[in-house]
Amino acid sequence: MHLIQLNHECLLHLFSFLDKDSRRSLSLTCHQLRDVFLDPCLWSLLHFSSPCQLRRDNFVLGPSLRYLTICWYSSRVLKVCNIEDWLKSSFQKDICSKHESVVSTFMSHVCQMCPNLFSLTLSGCGHINDQDVISLLRSCRKLCRLHLENCVRITDCSLEGVVAHGDSLAELKVDFCRNVTQAGLQAVAEKRPDIQLSAERSAGMIPDSKPERRVPLRRVLHKVLQFS
């Protein structure tokens, strides 16, 4: 029996064992396999290990997506993306300009196309901001788990969004997010006691400072050592 003689359900099952690149390569062989590749049912889980992977055409976004993970473990995150914008050199700003809107743009597509998202993990996404999180909470009303790790632009505004729009949220993690405060965490704990809340190191880290504000040298050195 030839591969394409299998019915659609069997082909979907076979595709489920392949990674994204292999699925796409196989889909280019004939129209029937292309239809399998484009079936939203195949794409209930997506994992990305860098922003550049979000620009590829080796996956499909759709209403079947339930689990989404974007984890970027890179020295670039610590040494470039995590630095306040006003402290960045022109070289660092140039590096960031090539990818700073990639995750936010991708998340806007998720908001539009994936209303049944159940779990989202964002780690090392230094350019994700509060509005990205709030838009997601408003659009994906079935979101039950939200894990944010080392996302430096996330502030208490995202926590306020959780209280206001995270109706289905049962688990929230905001680990190593330095601009989240203890007051913001306490507000979530009081207003949404049903949410399992975790915030490793977040409220104890040194928050960003404004350009016009003079920061003691000791605190600057402390922050440099944290991310070196």
Rank of each mutant, 00 (worst) to 15 (best):
E171A: 11
L14W: 03
C144R: 05
C71P: 01
S228F: 07
G62S: 12
P115D: 00
H127T: 03
L12T: 06
K142Q: 05
E84H: 07
R24N: 09
L225D: 03
R23S: 12
F15H: 07
Q226A: 03
P211G: 10
D94Y: 06
H222V: 09
L54W: 01
C140T: 00
H222Y: 12
P40G: 11
S22V: 04
F15N: 05
C96M: 04
I195M: 09
A170G: 12
E160I: 12
S22R: 06
K79L: 15
S27A: 14
L45D: 14
D167V: 05
H109C: 10
S97I: 03
P40Q: 11
L68W: 01
E190H: 02
D167T: 04
P63S: 02
L14Y: 09
P207T: 09
S90E: 12
I4V: 13
V110A: 00
L54A: 02
S50L: 05
F15C: 07
I206T: 11
W86S: 10
K223V: 14
R201D: 14
K20T: 14
L137V: 08
V80C: 09
D132S: 02
F48R: 04
V102F: 08
N82P: 01
D156W: 14
N7Y: 07
S44H: 06
D208Q: 08
L18V: 11
C140L: 01
F59I: 04
D57W: 03
E100W: 09
R55M: 15
F48I: 11
K191Y: 01
C140S: 01
P63H: 00
D39I: 09
S101T: 13
R219N: 09
L122H: 08
W86Q: 06
E84C: 06
Q226M: 05
S209N: 10
F176M: 07
V152H: 08
L146M: 15
E100R: 09
S123K: 08
M1F: 10
V36E: 03
V103C: 04
E149I: 15
V80H: 00
L14Q: 04
C144Q: 13
I154H: 08
S139E: 02
C71A: 13
D156Y: 12
S123Y: 10
R153P: 06
S22M: 06
D194Y: 03
M113Q: 08
R178L: 07
K93I: 04
A189H: 13
I195T: 06
Q182T: 13
T181M: 03
S25E: 15
P115C: 01
D175C: 13
V36A: 06
P51D: 07
V174G: 08
L28R: 12
S49I: 08
D39K: 07
I83N: 03
V152I: 14
W43C: 09
